[in-house]
Design a protein around this nucleic acid. Structure first.
Lengths: 337, 337
DNA sequence: GGAGCCTGTCGAAGCGCTTCGACACGCTAT
DNA sequence: ATAGCGTGTCGAAGCGCTTCGACAGGCTCC
């Protein structure tokens, strides 16, 4: 293994000079710099991460906590994770992958050991038990998702409240008066996951303002669960003509069931989805949707974090504005006889 | 920040003793051990990862290279990644997440810098350009997936050849003679991704042995692409009664299209899928399937790797035996008039 | 009863890097 | 000419930990 000292000897300079060439923290003459750089190349030198971390107390690693549960909104999580990893690399950081399994302990471990310089947390609950720890440490962090109290925290998220409002407005404008919301699994609401509750809040508030009737039903996803949920909805509100779906694994079952029941989309019922773009465009009906900008969220989270690590930037809540794209699944409400 | 030295002073022992308590590499009397452990608890001591890595040249980190492409078989990848992360933790390792983006350079960087002690590679191509690097280094590694030449490598994968054979056999036993295979996107085959090609090979070989007609068509997934693909298939082989699908995002579209065309599943056509269990059970028809044991693969990969790191275990190819679960999507071939 | 052997502890020498202060040199400004 | 300054380089002191050899003390064994 090649060390800094060997590079220094090869280039005929001192170790500190090589270090300064690498870090750029002091000015180095062009000739020296070139000589050193050539030695580095020739010897195939890679700085040792551990030594670097020890000496500088910076690991150049960002910890990313992803949810352990693999049963919900998985593609979005994966997309965010990949965007985070790629974004971090462009700033010279690597990503340490932590699953939710360890819970708050992971935060302690990472903070205490200096394994990572900063953290990004996903799957944030409204009253997340990791938050006090984050507030209590000096380690920079960014949440993807919005807890109830954002005091002293930096968060990045889609504005789910506005998302909900947008969906309702779209349907209202088309003349729908009875709207059903097919949400995430009940467990998601029970955990008080921010995005789910906020969307619902946005939907309800706007529906009230526009004097629409709104029925919300959580749904596990999958064909069977959707069948039960849908039956209940039409049972309770036979006049339902508008659907808002926020559950990837319920989308296709819903469409199949409506088709099966002879309800045409968008002639008889309209469907608006909150989901990643690919789900909306690859569904059996091209869906009018508000897309969840997973990549953008991942990228922004990294940017915020890097800014903090560089001493720029401060606590801030970044809410991305939702955009509704009209496709083939929504149209004017049918005229009542 | 609490250091080893402070713990030592607090416990009234030397630093090395504390270190040996932590690592267990030398015997320590019970009384001393307890005293040290209490000091550790009281002071809230966490060993510094950088210092540890430097002194021991072990980082206790495993690098995991996941594919950058987010457009294919995503849930499986995510599930493997999470299983790997969880499994690694139980052995005291953390996971460094690398995206395919950097390509072979990532291998060099990680190996050279001592960032990680070992690597797990996903999304392995038959003739992967990272393999020479792995063979050339002394760093332990495990592939999830099977390249063409496994010499000197440790691999974990589902036996996709057997998987293909199993699907064909199942359909043959039910009397189907004309089988269509709906595969992954063409790009996956062009990259010579091991699992796709091996499945196909298994399908073809067994079909030949059983004298069945087999038609393979790659498919991008999504409703539109599936519609085109399906039309072509029935155009070319109108007598097709058996389908094998290896593409999560083509499953639901296929079922919807068949339904739409008035072809009943399983009365008129049978469908066998190669996909994760949840996809098979949540589809609009409960699918006969060979499930991809993502978690098992992740867990096994970690086990192999840890064995290597501990000096046990050797190069080995672990092929998990496929299991076909019969559900509602396959039945006897229709009797020809 | 001394040689030989565990057992448990300690001191010291690094691991490879960053960083601080020092300093030599060649400027410009007086 | 000389003080004063900026520029480029070096030496040395750690960063917090692991690990090796040493050794004290209490064994067993012949």
């Amino acid at each position: 293994m090649v060390t800094l000292a060997e590079v220094a000897k090869h280039a005929g300079v001192s170790a500190s000079t090589v270090s300064y060439v690498l870090s750029g923290k002091r000015s180095i003459s062009t000739t020296t710099r070139q000589r050193v750089e050539e030695s580095i190349r020739k010897l195939g030198y890679h700085p040792n991460a551990g030594a670097r971390a020890l000496a500088s107390s910076r690991s150049n690693i960002i910890a990313l906590m992803i949810p352990l549960r693999t049963d919900m909104y998985v593609p979005v999580m994966m997309e965010i994770a990949i965007a985070v990893a790629a974004g971090a690399r462009t700033h010279g950081y690597d990503i340490l992958l932590l699953t939710g399994e360890e819970g708050p302990d992971a935060v302690r471990r990472v903070t205490g050991s200096g394994l990572a310089d900063a953290m990004i947390l996903m799957d944030v609950e409204l009253d997340d038990e990791r938050l006090p720890l984050l507030r209590g440490t000096h380690q920079p962090s960014v949440l993807i998702g919005l807890p109830a109290d954002t005091e002293g925290l930096t968060c990045v998220d889609l504005d789910f409240r506005a998302t909900g409002a947008l969906c309702v407005e779209h349907l209202a404008r088309l003349g729908h008066r009875d709207i059903a919301v097919i949400g995430e699994a009940a467990a998601v609401y029970e955990r008080h996951t921010g995005f789910a509750e906020r969307t619902l809040d946005g939907l309800r508030t706007r529906a009230r303002e526009l004097e629409l009737r709104l029925l919300h039903r959580p749904c596990e996803g999958g064909y069977d669960a959707m069948a039960v949920t849908l039956a209940r909805i039409f049972d309770e509100r036979p006049g339902t003509t508008g659907f808002v779906v926020q559950n990837e694994s319920a989308v296709e079952p819903l469409l199949a069931l409506l088709r099966q029941q002879g309800r045409a989309v968008p002639e008889d019922v309209s469907v608006v989805a909150v989901c990643p773009e690919e789900v909306a465009t690859q569904a059996s009906v091209r869906l009018t949707s508000v897309s969840v900008p997973a990549q953008e969220m991942g990228r922004r989270a990294v940017e915020q974090l890097v800014a903090k690590l560089d001493g720029r930037g401060s606590d801030e809540v970044v809410l991305l504005a939702p955009e509704l794209t009209v496709r083939a699944s929504s149209g004017p409400a049918p005229v009542r006889p």
